[in-house]
Structure formats: structure tokens, C-alpha cells
Design a protein around this nucleic acid. Structure first.
Length: 625
RNA sequence: GCGCCCGUAGCUCAGUUGGAUAGAGCAACGGACUUCUAAUCCGUAGGCCGCAGGUUCGAAUCCUGCCGGGCGCGCCA
């Protein structure tokens, strides 16, 4: 890329100065910036000012020494030293023109660089609990994580996108119980989803019928504060029982038992010496006639519920253009490891016991996270024997960095999780991983402005509703236009706006405009011709070429800073320049074929930048608008 | 109370490891379509960069204190 060539040249020049040993060792570390003002050149370096202090010399002199040594016979056309010590660099027109040639040659791979050196990076994001639909907050996480992954891939990292599924624990049990209750209700009410045209109608009738049938039964199977109360549970219940008549049968039998007031045997009614005995009794309790027990039903519901919600989430994300490479289930960490014949959680637990990072106190097992970054120690195994989510998370780190060998694991979390950063990083350190291998990025929460449809469910809006309302492109655009750390006020009215008020079209329009122009050119038998590029001489054309040259540099910067929003800023700047150029200069000129071909080549390069840039954002590049 | 994040134009926000005269979009006002798409362009107006100190050649950016807003502080996930 052009910037690298400049750095090389400067690095080379620095070697011949009196202060050569103070210059950066590697060319890629040579400071270079792109000035805001055109009169400050194409590139600038503040090297001299940085060295003024260590060298105890006037920066302007250092700058002059460097400037004098720069080879101006290649891509650099001129260097200029300005107070207090800036060195402004201009690139030759030939070098700028060759940028367009490269862009057209490289096509979809233009913008890619090798800084990542193929390092294995995992981006874990969204990771919502499989207990409900995705919200708009998840949407921002999805848009950010996915664009970050695309940007990292373009910068030469080997990226894997992962979604962590919390499929064990209290939340899942709670969900299973809620679905079980809803299913019992539907059996009692004798309602079947298949008798209704849509889920909405079914849910509506379900709620109406339930209200009108208040019996002792309803007090037993009533959903309360401890249950998930959303309508999606009613739908999930229907989906599960439609797919499994066996399970529905069990619910039926359970209801019969309840009606006949036969007590449902429970393992807690017996005294158990130990877990083995407890399990034996549990298995004996399975009803002899129908081979079922309520806890078994709940277990079955839990497994199916996770599948149902996961599939829904996957569909929503797919509509959003986000596809994960791996859906990692927490339960995997509790499966026996074939090599050591022990659960991964216990493997890690024992490992940390040996290093003294885990200890027992008051019947629980604690992680000594305060030895590292945390303010206090945390429980990983409760006194009832159950592991906490933190234990899973610790084992998960080991799985990522130790077992699967990612060089870097990036966690993308919502702001409500920021309190866990210290403990998760502590865990990484306790396991012996270098701190920089575990990154946590906090994405601030989303609020909705101009929202009108929030009456039904308070302020909760689901991601699929948002996508349906404003479209996947606009949704992604508005989430990505801000850096992750800022609070996002989502302007529904603006996002929904299908007119020129919507800034997203400003970007897409560039692409559509060029496509349409290319079509016109084709009719006139004109094609882009890089060989004609030396016809380009207008200042605005050279500025456009310079911007095109910046693309790989911008992508690289966005990837390394984990800030994909920079691509939007960049594309907006290119769009402004392009629209301005388009307005002032006619591309297709019947009486000047070579100029037409040259400008078409320029436009083709701009189009490539937009295709690739929009792709990194996950926003479509329409050919017509 | 403690911790993290944020505070920039009327609104939503950029501002690249500290750099040159702080920028976009929306809203407002005034212009430009017989022309490759006006979903566009050109111009005007709009600012104690929350406040006060400090660090230095140089601060919106780094440090300290305060003010205002968001979030988090469980043997919950």
C-alpha cells in the first residue's frame, strides 16, 4: 500500500541522518499521518518533533536533515519542512494513478493487507441466553462483532466468529418450567397451534381462553414472577409439542395424575445417603405405567427449548447478515474429555487448585481472583455442589486459548457485563495466558428514540421487529456509525426514512450511481481503461485517487483499533468527494474517448472501494436505487 | 458509597499512537436539474470541546478534582 511505501522511504532516509539510531527500528513503526488540510500534503510525519526532546535539538533542524535525505525520484514527489517541525509529503501523480490500476486489478481483495500475519483470532459476540428473542441491544453487538470480524479478516487475521450458548443452569430450568406450564395450560384448554393461521392468533386465543377458565388447575400451572412470562413462551410450547407427540403425551398423563390427585412422587420425599443413591431412587420413581416423571419432562423441555430458541436466534441473525462459525454450548464443558476422562470444568478446576488459585471456604470453592485484578474472590462452586457460571467461563477461556489455541480471544460484551472484566482477566492470568491474548470490548447499551410501537411490552423491542421495520442495512448502518464505547440513541424515524435524509443512502448511492453510469458507458461502447489514466489531471480527481489509496490503511487501522465504524467515516468522506466530482465533471464524453475511459477507470476504482467497504460493514451495495 | 463508560454546533455524533484554522449528517436559511440518477451539488449560519487546575513546543485527546447522564457492584445468569 502507498502509505507503507512512504514509510519505507522515510525509514530509509532516516538511516543516513546523524540520529539514525533514534529512528524506529522497523519501517512500519515510522509515524505517519494523513493531514486534514490539502495544503499539508498527502502524508505528514511528526518524527522530528518526537525526537526533539531525546536529542535535545530543535525539531526544525531534525526535520530538515530527514527531508534532505528523502529520495524524491520514486513515489514521493516532494517533501516540505514546516514549523514547528512537520514534514509534509507529496506523492507523484504517477504513483496516485497506479493506485487506480492496482484497485481495478485486485478487485474484491483490494483493501486487504497482511498485518494480521494469519494470527488466529476468535471474536465471541452476542452470546445471548437461549431463553428469549434477541433484542435491539443484541443487534448492536451482532453488527459490531460481525463487522469487526470482517475487518480483521481483511487485515490478514484468521478469524472465527463464535456464539456462546448458556444451555445449562437456572435460566434454562426456569424456561423449561415455564414452557411446561404453558403446555399444560394448552392441553387443559384443548388448544392446538395447528388450528390457527398465525402464532399471533393462537397466542391471542390462548390468553383469552385462559382468562375465562379460572379453576384450581390454573393456580397450580399459573405462570408467576419466577417464570418467563413473555408470549414467545406460548409459541415455543406449541412448536415443541407439535414436533413431539410423545412429550405432549407425557404432559397429558401428568395432567391426568394431577386431576386424579395422585401424588406425584418426588425424590425429595426420600432420604438419600449420597448422589448415587439419589439417582437410583430417581430412576425408580419413573412412573411404571407411562415411563415418565415430571423432572424428566422438564429435562426434555429444557433440551428442546434451547433448540427452539437457538433456531429463532439463528434465523434473526441470518436475516441480519450475521453468520457464526461456531455455536459453542456451555454444556460441552461438562462433557467428559476423551483424553483425561474428566469434565473440562473439573480439569481446569483441579489445575487451578494445584496452583493455589482455588480454595475451599464455608463449603464452597472460591477462585482467588483478588490475587490478580479483581477486588475480591469469587465463588465457582456453590455449597450445594453446583458450579457457577464463572466456573464455566474460566473453563471456556482454557478451551479457547489452551485447547483450541487461538492467539487472541476477543470478548464482545454489553455494558451490563463490564463488572466481569476483572474476574475474567484474572482467570486468564491464573491459567497462565499472556494478558494481551484476552481482550474484552464493552459495547454500550442502546436506547430507542422516536419509538411508537413500545406499548405492548414496555420498552423492549426485538431485533427481528427492528429489522422488519427499518431493514437490515439501515439497522446495521446506524449501529455501526458510532464507536462501541458510546451510548447509542437509535433514531427510528431517521433509520426508517427512505428519503435522502437517511445518511445511509449517501453511501449506497455512490455505488448505484457508478453502476448506472457503467451501464450507460457500455451502451456507448466505452470501457474503463487504466492505460488512459494519465488523462486525469483535475485536482478533485487526484484527491479521489488519494482517498482510494487510503482504503487499505483505513481498514488496517480499523482492525487494529477494533473500530469498524472508522470505515463508515472513511466511506462518507470518499462519497462526498465522489459526488462533488460527479457533479462538476462529466464522465462520459462523446468527443473525448480517452478521457471518458480514464474517468470510468477512476469510477470503477471508487466502486470497488465501496463494494469492499460496504461489505465489511455488512451493508448491501445496490446497483440501482 | 465504590468501580467502569460517556459529556464536542439546536439534535445525533466524528475527530486515527497528543499535532497544523475542531469536522460530518439531520434540522434552519439561500442557490443549482432540457445534461452520465437532484437519494446529488454549491453556499450561509451555528462552538468557553461539561467546569476548574496540571503535564509540554502543542491538549477535545493524557493526569487530578468537581458537576451531569448511563451501567455495574450476589454461593444469579
Amino acid at each position: 500500500m502507498l502509505a507503507d511505501q512512504i514509510k519505507q522511504a522515510l525509514h530509509q532516509a532516516a538511516k543516513t541522518t546523524p540520529w539514525a539510531d533514534h529512528a524506529p527500528a522497523r519501517a512500519q513503526d515510522f509515524p505517519l499521518e494523513t493531514p486534514k488540510k490539502a495544503e499539508h500534503g498527502h502524508y505528514a510525519t511528526n518524527m522530528a518533533m518526537r525526537l526533539a526532546k531525546p536529542l535535545k535539538r530543535a525539531p526544525i533542524q531534525i526535520a530538515q536533515e530527514l527531508a534532505a535525505a528523502v529520495d524524491t525520484s520514486g513515489v514521493i514527489e516532494s517533501v516540505e519542512v514546516v514549523n514547528p517541525g512537520f514534514i509534509n509529503i507529496r506523492v507523484s501523480a504517477a504513483a496516485l494513478r497506479s493506485v487506480a490500476v492496482q484497485t481495478l486489478e485486485q478487485g474484491e481483495s483490494y483493501g486487504k493487507t497482511g498485518v494480521g500475519q494469519g494470527a488466529k483470532v476468535q471474536v465471541e459476540f452476542v452470546s445471548a441466553n437461549p431463553t428469549g428473542p434477541l433484542s435491539v441491544g443484541h443487534g448492536r453487538l451482532a453488527a459490531y462483532g460481525d463487522s469487526l470480524a470482517r475487518t480483521l479478516a481483511a487485515a490478514g487475521f484468521a478469524v472465527q466468529r463464535e456464539f456462546y450458548v448458556n444451555d445449562v443452569g437456572n435460566q434454562i430450568e426456569k424456561l423449561a418450567r415455564s414452557i411446561f406450564k404453558r403446555t399444560s395450560q394448552s392441553v387443559f384448554l384443548n388448544l392446538r397451534r395447528s388450528d390457527f393461521q398465525t402464532d399471533e392468533k393462537y397466542i391471542q386465543e390462548f390468553k383469552r381462553a385462559f382468562k375465562e377458565n379460572v379453576t384450581p388447575f390454573t393456580t397450580h400451572f399459573q405462570v408467576n414472577e419466577d417464570d418467563y412470562q413473555g408470549d414467545d413462551v406460548i409459541a415455543a410450547s406449541a412448536i415443541i409439542t407439535e414436533a413431539s407427540s410423545e412429550l405432549l403425551n407425557c404432559v397429558n398423563i401428568n395432567l391426568d395424575l394431577f386431576r386424579s390427585r395422585k401424588p406425584i412422587p418426588n425424590v425429595d420425599d426420600f432420604t438419600c445417603e449420597n448422589d448415587v443413591q439419589r439417582e437410583e431412587i430417581q430412576s425408580l420413581l419413573i412412573h411404571p405405567e407411562c415411563n415418565f416423571s415430571e423432572s424428566r419432562i422438564l429435562n426434555e423441555f429444557a433440551i428442546k427449548a434451547v433448540d427452539v430458541y437457538l433456531e429463532k436466534q439463528q434465523n434473526t441473525l441470518k436475516q441480519f447478515g450475521v453468520v457464526f462459525d461456531k455455536w459453542f454450548r456451555e454444556s460441552e464443558l461438562y462433557q467428559l474429555d476423551g483424553v483425561h476422562n474428566v469434565e473440562q470444568v473439573n480439569l481446569v478446576l483441579n489445575k487451578l487448585r494445584e496452583t493455589g488459585d482455588m480454595y475451599e471456604k464455608e463449603g464452597a470453592v472460591w477462585f482467588a481472583s483478588s490475587k490478580y485484578l479483581d477486588e475480591k474472590d469469587r465463588v465457582v462452586q456453590k455449597s450445594d455442589g453446583n458450579k457457577t457460571y464463572l466456573m464455566s467461563d474460566i473453563a471456556y477461556i482454557y478451551n479457547k486459548l489452551g485447547v483450541r489455541g487461538f492467539d487472541t480471544a476477543i470478548y464482545v460484551w454489553g455494558a451490563d457485563h463490564h463488572g466481569y472484566i476483572d474476574r475474567i482477566k484474572s482467570a486468564g492470568q491464573a491459567l497462565g495466558f499472556a494478558p494481551e491474548r484476552l481482550e474484552v470490548i464493552i459495547v454500550q447499551l442502546v436506547s430507542i428514540k422516536g419509538e411508537r410501537m413500545s406499548k405492548r411490552r414496555g420498552n423492549i423491542i426485538y431485533l427481528d421487529e427492528l429489522i422488519e421495520d427499518v431493514g437490515a442495512d439501515a439497522t446495521r448502518f446506524f449501529f455501526l456509525t458510532r464507536p462501541p464505547g458510546t451510548h447509542c440513541d437509535f433514531d427510528m424515524d431517521l433509520a426508517r426514512d427512505k428519503s435522502e435524509n437517511n445518511p445511509m443512502y449517501y453511501l449506497q448511492y455512490v455505488h448505484a450511481r457508478i453502476c448506472s453510469m457503467m451501464e450507460k458507458a457500455g451502451e456507448a461502447n466505452l470501457a474503463p481503461d487504466p492505460a488512459a489514466l494519465d488523462r486525469l489531471a483535475e485536482p478533485v480527481e487526484m484527491e479521489l485517487l488519494k482517498l482510494i489509496a487510503d482504503f487499505p490503511w483505513e481498514v488496517q487501522g480499523a482492525a487494529l483499533a477494533r473500530e469498524p465504524h472508522r470505515i463508515i467515516n472513511y466511506l462518507t468522506a470518499v462519497a462526498g468527494k465522489f459526488h462533488s466530482f460527479y457533479h462538476d465533471h462529466k464522465v462520459i464524453q462523446q468527443d473525448d474517448e480517452s478521457l471518458s475511459r480514464a474517468r470510468l477507470a477512476l469510477c470503477g476504482a471508487v466502486r470497488t472501494v465501496f463494494r469492499n467497504g460496504l461489505d465489511m460493514l455488512g451493508i448491501s451495495a445496490p446497483e440501482k436505487m
